[in-house]
Design a protein around this nucleic acid. Structure first.
Lengths: 343, 343
DNA sequence: CCAAAACCTGGGAGCGCTCCCAGAACGTTC
DNA sequence: GAACGTTCTGGGAGCGCTCCCAGGTTTTGG
């Protein structure tokens, strides 16, 4: 479809608020009120302004708005560089999509920043310098001081995933504990007796929460929780951890892997050892990435809604910016079990 | 320093240019010159200014710079919404990482926008409204008029992937043609006789270029190029296309899949039909996503460097913004064959 | 019927920076 | 020493908007 977006307007002569005012036969102030949806504007004036805006293709100059007003109309999404490597990419893209979906219609821009080694001070200066109204932090290695610093500086901040070192900073996370517990219970209910787990790094809350949930699920059923190996959210580490587990307990008959991406590696190791999945060893993952359904065999896993994670973070931040009070200090999103063939 | 009670959520006591000037004992103008690296500043003054900046933790107000100056110090990355669904996420994240890497150290912000259905005019108004100095477009469905519109409006624009409907707009792409040709030649060299392909959608250059390259590779070796099925860059479509191919030619002994993500689906179908890979049917993918190495069996594929794609786009845009002339109208990045077990 | 309250409107002072211009301080050359 | 660069410096006029204030017009209430 060749949907014609309007004729290109010359770039230099930018229509200004004043021209809209003249065209609509009102004052600058009134135009400003209309644009900002303020009350106390007659419907006649409002109508005239809207028409003028449409005709002139007016788009307010953000820089001027920011400078004159007290808001930047802009929020930042900060991703730690380690994060961008460690974190599996689909996660990031999903969150981003959610953030954008939630921002739709709001006149708020999203600027993206990645913290770099040694750059932290610049980043903090920038963020606290009034260029943004709030920050969404996607921080992964647990003890990142950034959220704390920003929050202490009075900048509204929401973190993605429970921060280990920033108590008191609002965060949004999937309910990793209960999700993992459900996985454990499922395996127990299916009659598995010797159940191991491949957990994420000890310095990430997501890894620890899933480990805790798994332990709780097993111990409630009086199943041994000693069979633990660790990975770092890469397929390779998953493969190595699986080998480790197999050595610890050759009679292992099920494994809960704290991330699909590691489960892929685990599947390879299992295959290499001649173990059939799920007949010899059942496998349950976590995340429900696209690849979970195309794994061989398709992976039973705990789904987390990453897009919803992004949406919720944004909602929480925008609510705070709107001055809402008594907002929840954290939000946990439910997970859901997705049963395929691997367990 | 008056240590009065700092009222919460009071206006940010932002250090301004003027304060730096006072602290350094020079004028605003001189501080501005130092910040912008202009000549005609004595080293004594420059030194004093740098010290003052460091001591006060000064960070220039971008809004004011934009408003006063002619540049926005900001570039936009526009992703079409369809794109965010169609395009596999790792691709997007990789490009983004490259963009950021290339921007490091430059005082340029990156704002992210997604075009939404019906939103096009707003988007164009915003982008052409002087809020950004240039645009990186990640557009997927071929005939997107956006790049053309932006370029016609005089806004420096670089597109990711050869645009079908925007001749003349600078773009950066992987060398899909030669990559696919290499895959075809490889299969021929390995003695395969009956070679099919699963191509991407006909309205995307990436799909067509890979198809063309494959055809060229086969026809040079006088192998039949009639065995073609189409998918849409999802695993499901890959699985369906593979089934189609198998029906067309039960004696097929190799297939080039125009995207790893579709290859995953193809692998499933092959498995379901009892075909061994690579013994019965060899499979070569394209992209070399992380999942290629964890597929069963690990996928032989053509690697494209998505991060480099992002870097190159950004470099091209920044060069244009810097006023460089006679820049190449397009840039093709080389691909590389990665041999694993599937072929 | 008049005062108070609720609505609507326009004027104008900045927000913090860049950039132009005028001029000072220093050579250099005839 | 006059006449010119060349290097450096400060002053000040905006950039396009928001927000405060003062003043008009209507509605409400006693």
């Amino acid at each position: 479809m060749t949907d014609a977006v309007d004729p290109p307007k010359a770039r230099r002569p930018n229509t200004r608020l004043e021209e809209v005012a003249r065209a609509a036969g009102v004052s600058k102030s009134t135009v400003s009120r209309v644009i900002n949806g303020e009350p106390y504007v007659s419907s006649r004036a409002r109508e005239a302004v809207h028409q003028a805006i449409g005709k002139l293709g007016y788009s307010p100059n953000q820089a001027a708005r920011t400078l004159a007003g007290s808001r930047a109309n802009c929020i930042a999404m900060v991703v730690s560089e380690q994060g961008s490597r460690v974190l599996n990419d689909p996660f990031f893209a999903g969150v981003l999509r959610g953030v954008h979906a939630e921002l739709a219609g709001k006149r708020v821009q999203l600027v993206l920043m990645m913290s770099k080694e040694g750059d932290e001070q610049d980043l903090v200066n920038y963020l606290c310098g009034g260029h943004v109204d709030g920050v969404l932090v996607i921080s992964l290695h647990g003890q990142d001081p950034l959220p704390r610093t920003l929050a202490d500086a009075g900048l509204p901040t929401v973190v993605c995933g429970r921060p280990l070192g920033a108590g008191g900073v609002p965060y949004v996370d999937s309910d990793n504990f209960n999700g993992a517990m459900e996985a454990a219970r499922y395996l127990v209910a299916r009659g598995h007796k010797r159940i191991g787990t491949i957990a994420g790094p000890r310095d990430m809350a997501v890894g620890m929460d899933r480990l805790s949930g798994w332990k709780r699920g097993l111990s409630q059923a009086r199943v041994d929780t000693g069979l633990v190996a660790y990975g770092d959210f890469t397929p390779e580490s998953g493969a190595a951890a699986m080998a480790d587990l197999l050595q610890q307990a050759p009679d292992l008959d099920a494994v809960f892997v704290g991330a699909d991406i590691m489960a892929l590696g685990a599947l390879q190791t299992l295959h290499a050892h001649g173990k059939r999945v799920p007949d010899d060893v059942a496998v349950v993952g976590f995340d429900d990435l696209m690849i979970a359904s195309t794994a061989v065999p398709p992976l039973t896993t705990i789904r987390q809604d990453v897009e919803q994670l992004g949406r919720t973070m944004t909602w929480r931040l925008m609510a705070e910016l709107a001055g809402e009070e008594n907002l929840p200090p954290f939000l946990l999103l439910p997970t859901a079990m997705v049963t395929r063939s691997s367990a």
